[in-house]
Design a protein around this nucleic acid. Structure first.
Length: 589
RNA sequence: GGUCUCAUAGCUCAGCUGGAUAGAGCAACAGAUUUCUAAUCUGUCGGUCACAGGUUCGAAUCCUGUUGAGAUCACCA
């Protein structure tokens, strides 16, 4: 629509002898109740024209109609100039752009972006919160790729630390050699089981010590189990063979479990980083910061940065004993990642509970003079809450990722079978379909909401399959495919001489035409929700068209072919858009 | 207490850098299938955009304050 903006610039220059910048021109979609497709708000130009908004609109409208051949009509209502494009213009869009193979295929923009997401702890299985993270990360990566970026998907695995030692210790003490094979438990769930055991036993010990007269704080430090875990961590850091072997074994189980969950989720990574390899990084950056005077050392030897001038606090960056804290590692890892890929931008998909951490992290890197720090972005998403509040593993309110997905598949199977929709499907096809629909419902449910907002999930109310949902969109797609098949639609041979559009057809083309811009918008704000809502809009408009314009019963072949072309274009955009969300669309359902 | 986020229909959410009468879905109610898949469609009901000021020709959107909810402020990660 750039040519309209240019034309408006010219119009204003000629009519009112004033230069205005193209970016200051505000075009918007015409509301449905008015004639036209694009609207220019004329209030801002009344000062230039020294006339009322209606007259200004009429003058600009007349100029545009006389000078822009694509414009067929205009009308002015109050301060709104509604512009209509000729049907030939929209038909040209359909045939030359939308139906072309390379529609909305982003041209490489020469930029490299890293998307870090998932980043699990290896001491317990994934839950619903992780699902949101994984789906967001994967989808944002897809969207950026579609927008022309070269994308590197990374996973920084938190595979060491006191929490890992807890499950290791519990397994060694109470596990009796249990393995995933012997127990039939998925590896990550097995590790999680011992993590919970540890927590329980530890709590018990604290309770006992408190009864013996210690304060709770003392008890937490003195409980034999936590001391044992800390000892284990020290041994791990010292490279003790038994400890390392145990760690490798249990982490191996967890990785196998995660791999399965990732596969079901449909997410993947180009590069894994492990904290066991990176936790010592960052100390050289501390040195660098001390030399540059960005950091300072306190008497006890600990190193700090003073961010009070930036409205933040003083922040510890290295402990008095010379060991790293979380941010030390992150400083080092950021440097490592940049060294590996030299990416222009780097997106951290991490929950908003870490807003402060990332603010500090990025600020420190900037203060250290790292040019690339300007490309860092924290994609801060809201927590997934239950009606009862936060998910808490201790209270057993965690919605387990594997359980939830299994539930979704079952619900999809029941619903589909109850509707008798799978006649003629093989067992294999049925199962594939149930998974497609189940995951479609789950993914759409999580991705349609603005990432920044917290998200409410009620386990008692299963995720809908009707209305504004993934399955609705999948159904729309399947329906189109079914008609195309029945009609024997052939994209290369299909011809239509249609020259006039009715309102619904025009609206459909206008909506299809918005797809490339929607990708740009979604990429600019890292928001799959923008794609999700767009596709729903498209599916809804298509469905209305579908109901009102019978394709097979079209009065003439020309008309039928045109409707088929519109249908094919809609199916294509639905499918591509859903793909950006990581959601498959079935041919039949 | 400091800092940061959020508040739109009974519920879950849209509403792009300020623009026309604030939109969907669910729920409720009334309809639509001799016709391409009814996981669908059409219609009805439902709003003091938390509250109060301000800026503006114009505010759900920007600013200030109030109330409410959440997060964070560890030599945890």
């Amino acid at each position: 629509m750039d040519f309209i903006i240019e034309a408006v610039v010219k119009a204003i220059k000629e009519l009112y002898q004033t230069d205005i910048a193209a970016k200051d021109i505000n075009l918007q979609e015409t509301r449905k109740e008015f004639e036209g497709q694009v609207t220019l708000v004329t209030f801002p130009y009344t000062k230039l024209s020294r006339k009322g908004p209606e007259q200004t609109g009429t003058e600009i409208g007349e100029y545009l109609q006389n000078n822009v051949p694509e414009i067929s009509a205009f009308n002015v209502i109050k301060g709104f100039l509604n512009i209509s494009f000729a049907d030939s213009f929209w038909l040209g869009k359909l045939h030359d752009e939308i139906l072309a193979d390379d529609f909305a295929v982003g041209k490489p923009n020469g930029k490299k972006v890293m998307v870090e997401y998932s980043s699990p702890n290896t001491n317990k299985p994934l839950h619903l919160g992780h699902i949101r993270n994984n789906l967001l990360g994967f989808s944002v990566a897809q969207i950026l790729a579609a927008a022309g970026y070269e994308v590197i998907k990374t996973n920084l695995v938190n595979d060491r630390g006191i929490h890992i030692c807890k499950s290791m210790l519990a397994w060694r003490e109470f596990g009796e050699g249990e393995t995933p094979e012997s127990s039939g438990l998925k590896g990550d769930h097995l590790a999680g089981k011992y993590y919970v055991w540890f927590d329980k036993a530890y709590k018990q010990q604290i309770l006992e010590l408190v009864e013996e007269g210690q304060t709770e704080e003392e008890a937490k430090k003195n409980a034999p189990l936590i001391k044992e875990a800390q000892l284990m961590l020290q041994k791990w850091e010292a490279g003790d063979e038994d400890t390392i072997n145990l760690w490798k074994t249990m982490n191996g189980w967890v990785y196998a479990g995660f791999a399965e969950t990732y596969k079901t989720l449909g997410v993947e990574f180009d590069k894994y980083y492990y904290e066991s390899n990176t936790y010592l990084l960052g100390k050289d950056i501390i040195e660098e910061g001390l030399e540059k005077g960005v950091f300072f050392r306190k008497d006890d030897g600990s190193v700090w940065i003073d961010l009070t001038a930036d409205g933040l606090d003083q922040k510890l960056v290295l402990r008095a004993d010379g060991t790293s804290v979380y941010i030390t590692q992150d400083l080092g890892t950021a440097q490592l990642k940049y060294g590996d890929y030299k990416m222009d931008e780097s997106i951290y998909v991490v929950g908003n509970e870490q807003d402060y951490h990332f603010k500090v992290l990025f600020l420190i890197l900037q203060k250290l003079g790292k040019e690339w720090a300007r490309g860092l972005y924290h994609l801060s998403y809201g927590m997934v809450d239950l009606p009862s509040g936060k998910m808490k593993s201790r209270e057993g309110t965690v919605v387990d990722a594997d359980d939830l997905m299994a539930d979704m598949f079952n619900t999809a199977a029941e619903t589909t079978e109850a509707m008798g929709k799978v006649d003629g499907f093989s067992e294999e096809d049925k199962n594939k379909l149930y998974r497609t629909i189940g995951m479609g419902a789950l993914k759409y449910f999580l991705l349609k909401v603005d990432p920044k907002k917290r998200l409410l999930f009620d386990p008692k109310e299963s995720i809908d399959f009707q209305g504004h949902t993934g399955p609705y969109i999948q159904f729309t797609h399947a329906r189109i495919k079914s008609v195309l098949k029945k009609a024997g639609y052939n994209p290369t041979e299909s011809k239509s001489e249609t020259t006039e559009l009715d309102e619904l057809e025009r609206e459909l083309i206008v909506t299809l035409n918005k797809y490339p811009q929607t990708i740009s918008d979604a990429a600019a704000s890292f928001s799959p929700a923008i794609i999700a809502n767009y596709i729903y809009d498209l599916a809804k408009i298509y469905t209305r068209f579908y109901h009102e314009k019978p394709i097979m019963l079209a009065e003439e072949e020309n008309q039928k072919q045109f409707r088929l072309q519109l249908s094919a274009a809609s199916a294509k955009v639905i499918s591509k858009g859903m793909n950006l969300l990581g959601i498959d669309v079935p041919e039949r359902m």
